[in-house]
Amino acid sequence: MSPISRGFGGRRRPVADPSRVPPGQYVTPDFPVLSAGPTPHTPLDEWSFTIHGAVEKPVSWPWDEFIALPSETVTVDIHCVTKWSKLDTSWKGVSVDTLLENVETEAEYVTAWSDGGYTTNLALEDVTGGRAWIAYEYGGEPLEPEHGGPARLVVPHLYFWKSAKWVRGLTLTPDDQPGFWENYGYHNHGDPWLEQRYQGD
């Protein structure tokens, strides 16, 4: 074990209500930016959101139609697998339930895919039942590119690598298909309360 650096505490903050912080996590007031690649900058007139794959009929919305869909504003805690948690983050977006309303499928899994090539896999039940949104506002402001704007997936009950930035669509799949980080050893499910960080956890 390394020697202790006198007086070092890191960025962590004490938490008023520890029951909100999953095991192994620290609360941060910051919003760290972690990325696997350059920030995409898709012009809004070229942007669309698509649901396809194992569905009866694919569906797609251009930006203007997308932001005209019924939206919700939610305040949630988010947990990054790198151990920081951020409490009371506010997002505005379209619930994935709304997007899947008229989609017929027997698939049980989805792969969220993004500009720049990022993918992540989730069970369909993890993005439905009021548990996931495609968010285009953060903290009352349009979502900044470095945080995933114009729109990102937000799935607060799972580790935040599942909340794909720059999301452009959901591919419904019959089987669970590991996405980018999952292929490199991260967990297929990613429940922070069970500390499902890596495959096999």
Binding site: M1, S2, P3, I4, S5, F8, G9, G10
Partner: peptide
């Protein structure tokens, strides 16, 4: 350079 806090947290 590596710093270690009392609870084992490292940066």
């Amino acid at each position: 350079v590596r710093l270690t806090a009392e609870d084992g947290y490292q940066a």
